[in-house]
Every structure is written in C-alpha cells, then in structure tokens.
Amino acid sequence: MAFREINMDALNIRDFRVGRFQNGRYFISLANTLADGYVICFSKTQNPITLDDLVGCPQEFLNYLLQEGYAQYQLPSGEWIALRAVPRRAFDAMPTFSDFTTHPPERIQVWTMLVRPHMDIYVPKQPGAETQFLPAFYSVSWRDGGRDANGGSRPGELVVSIAREVQYVQGSLEYRVGEHEPIPLPYNALGQKLYIQNNGEPVIVQPAAGFENRYRDEAARNH
C-alpha cells in the first residue's frame, strides 16, 4: 500500500464541494466512478499537500489508517495533517458525506483509493479540483459612540467574534480606523467590547496580510 500519482483521468475527483448545513455542520459531495474509497486530508499548511509531502509515509502508518479510519501524520516540515479513510459506500448511501469534524481555517483534500491490484491512494500531481480551503468566519459588531454634549467624539463599541473552536493565530485579524495603520487583535480581545476613538472615521475589521484566505466576514457569507 502506498501513495501514488494519478495515472488515469478516471481516478480524479470531480464535482468536489464542501458545503455547510443550516445547523453549521460541514458536508462533502463529490463524483468518481472508479474509487473503492477515499482519503480525506485536513491541513493548515501554507500550501496544499502534494505527493512529495507524503513520499516518506511508512507502511505501518498506512495500515493503521486503514484499520482505524483516522490518523495524524507529521510532515517533514514538522507540521501535522489529519487523514480520514472512508469506504465508497459512505458516499453511496447519501449524496453527501458529513461524518467528519473540521476546524477552520483548514484545507480539505480528497484522494481516491483503489483496492486492486494493491491498496493504493492516488494523489494528483498538481492539487486542483479535489482541494478546498475552508475559511474561519468572524463576526463584527460596531456601534458608533456619537457626540458628547460638547460636540466631541465619543468612543464607539467594537466586538469581533469567532467560533470557539477556531485555532486563532495572534494578530491575524485586525481593525482599522479610517486610513490609520491597522491595530492587530489578540485572541483575548475577541468577543470583548473594545472602545475605539474613531472621530467619525469608518472602522473596519479585516484579516491581516498573509491571512486573507483564512478568514471571512460572517456578514459577507450571509449575503
């Protein structure tokens, strides 16, 4: 059993989609006629996982993955990824598969598994249609402070929240008043009321540079 490069088109995952039910649970749907099963890879690395990252994966690890259906693997770079092995029937029974847990911001990749002639997992040369990055959602509440009796500006009230399970990187969200340099937010400021002197200038919350794809405003999703 080994990771191999996809050598025929039928092994490619098609129509891959990660969606979210009303209750907040994520689901996967995909199409493939050949696979006997799938391996779902969850990663938080900068770039998608490629065959090169998996070359040194030991046989024992793969046996364990098949047997238990779930295993964590440390890449040569030191980062960890999680792998989930799922038989084909799990997808055939329902149009969608939702028996998994993800912790956005996180990337999901799905690879095909064949039982014959050997038990092998097929990874495309270039990550593409079988890859999707799930951003974490944050929500923003802003209440302007208005003016005091002397006509001076009063601080407004800002609350930035993310789901509790999100693994937040310190400073990866920031707020910005007008054209001033942004102020990075630590984890312990999230969910807290922050009073901001904005002097009538707009206050926006945004992902910091380098984190643009990892966070998305809840309000934008609802639209």
Binding site: Q170, G171, E181, I183, P184, L185, P186, Y187, N188, A189
Partner: peptide, 18 residues
Amino acid sequence: SGSQDSGPGIWDLVYDRY
C-alpha cells in the same frame, strides 16, 4: 498589555508589528 497567563494584549501585538 497582556500577561503570561492571559496571552499577549493589543499593545504587545502593536509593539511587535510596528
């Protein structure tokens, strides 16, 4: 500022970045 227990505060991140 934050503390060792609570993690970094806004000042700590502002200081580090700028």
